[in-house]
């Protein structure tokens, strides 16, 4: 058998979008190696997420639904997922490269004594072997690997595989208990409702030292808000994070986050090599900078030279008008 297990991520009863992309990657591999895609979700109150997974194109959905799994626990989830992997003997196990995926899949890999390639942007199956591509050095280079051990495990970078639909898949519910936990989630403090996570944002509005003052980031927040709720996130260069203007979770680049939004605005960011590494895979890049010679203009699709305090408000007005007309 050459099944593909996809570990789906459910937070507060909601299926996370990158999990649908992981199913799509699983379908691509299944088409090449002839297996079935089995989507496995662990959590509490999984009915809605299970229904979404049934329509994801997966052939089979397995839900492990118990109150003890309401919060993510690396060790408890790993035990359950490992059991499912042993049961279905998959050729490959996939999951999204999210905070949960990064924590969970290495534990499963350890339990299966298997290799794992993380933050993958392309997968394949050639000559009986799984292959993957992943950015290294924060995207300054791409590593191409071939699995030598089985099963093949991978976490997939969000926004790189297009979600599919299909089904409805068969669904199976399995009883389990969380048991003793080595690490316990005490609290999950949600960010402001309207704030979209940087790596999931379709649009990133990033600022740097050119903004001169932490207060000036308000104009970037205004531009981000102009796209409407849940579309744009604010990002920051390392310089302004190190200066304490912005929190680290907003940092784009090496030692921060690597993002691939549809649209990236670099405002007052000169374009240090470690920053470019973190945003060069954005589909469209717009740079706004006073210095016409700033390296950021070498990677930007479109540039405007000039004062951000003059340009950004005008841009915000235009975007807000477009958003309102939609």
């Amino acid at each position: 058998m050459s099944n593909i297990v996809v570990v789906a991520e459910v937070r507060a009863g909601k299926l996370k979008r990158p999990s649908l992309e992981a199913v799509a990657a699983g379908l691509q591999l299944a088409a090449q190696n002839g297996g079935k895609v089995i989507a496995v979700a662990v959590g509490s109150g999984l009915d809605a997420a299970g229904a979404d997974l049934q329509k994801s194109g997966a052939h089979q959905v397995v839900l492990i639904d118990a109150p003890g799994f309401a919060n993510f626990s690396g060790d408890a989830y790993a035990r359950i997922v490992t059991e499912q992997c042993k049961k279905h003997a998959p050729a490959a196990v996939l999951m999204a490269h999210t905070a949960m995926g990064k924590d969970l899949l290495p534990r499963v890999a350890a339990a299966l004594d298997a290799g794992l390639v993380t933050d993958v942007v392309a997968v394949g199956f050639q000559g009986g072997k799984f292959t993957a591509q992943k950015p290294v050095f924060a995207g300054k280079a791409t590593l191409h690997v071939q699995a030598t051990r089985s099963p093949f495990l991978a976490t997939l970078r969000p926004n790189n595989f297009e979600a599919k639909s299909g089904g409805p898949a068969t669904i199976e519910k399995i009883a389990a208990e969380a048991g003793n936990l080595l690490s316990v989630v005490k609290e999950v403090i949600a960010a402001a409702q309207d704030r979209v996570p940087l790596q999931e944002a379709k649009v990133v509005v990033a600022g740097g030292r050119g903004l001169k003052d932490p207060e000036q980031f308000k104009i970037l927040e205004g531009l981000a808000a102009a796209f409407g709720p849940g579309v744009a996130a604010v990002g920051a260069s390392r310089a302004v994070v190190d200066a304490g203007w912005r929190p680290h979770r907003e940092q784009v680049g090496q030692t921060g986050k690597v993002v691939s939004p549809t649209l990236y605005f670099a405002i007052g960011i000169s374009g240090a090599i470690q920053h470019l590494a973190g945003m060069r895979t954005a589909r469209t890049i717009v740079a706004i900078n006073k210095d016409a010679d700033a390296p950021i203009f070498k990677v930007a699709d479109y540039g405007i030279v000039g004062d951000a305090f003059e340009i950004v408000p005008a841009l915000t007005k235009a975007i807000a008008a477009l958003t309102a007309s939609k």
Binding site: A114, A141, T142, H144, V145, A147, T148, A300, G303, I304
Partner: peptide, 22 residues
């Protein structure tokens, strides 16, 4: 467990254009 097949540089982004000033 993951043998390196190759290490490559990403394709360079095509040069963009400056649309104007201010």
């Amino acid at each position: 467990a993951m043998a390196i097949v190759s290490l490559t540089l990403p394709p360079a982004r095509a040069a963009g254009r400056i649309l104007g000033t201010g």
